[in-house]
Amino acid sequence: MIELLDKVDKPNVIENSCLLQGKEVLASSFTPDKKNHETIAKQAFNYVFLNVARMNAKHNEAHLEIGDKRLSGFILKPELVLVCMSDKACNIALVRDHVAEVKKLFLQEQVNRMLA
């Protein structure tokens, strides 16, 4: 799964990423000096998507700007959230487009794992 995260990270767009299942980090490319960001992302997106579900809302992505970074969370499938960290100045459309591309790969990987 970490190999997939390598495909997520992209110079000048996505600096670090991780995959969340509930409170568990399944895989992460966050470097030790960025662990605080990972922790915040984990708690924040859990909270946000929990509220979204509780409200029966259909929102499936969330962005949080903190300091000079932007944390983006995308629901890949129920219970599975992809977190990407970018520079605040980075165009959010680039992040979105890139995530849409790798989303398919993730889902394929999930299917493969289930079949294995």
Partner: peptide, 19 residues
């Protein structure tokens, strides 16, 4: 309240395809 290390939260946005 927690994170002096990473800076202040300036905004939070949620979106999706049909919302």
């Amino acid at each position: 309240q927690k994170s002096e290390l990473v800076g202040e939260v300036s905004n939070i946005v949620v979106g999706g395809p049909a919302v």
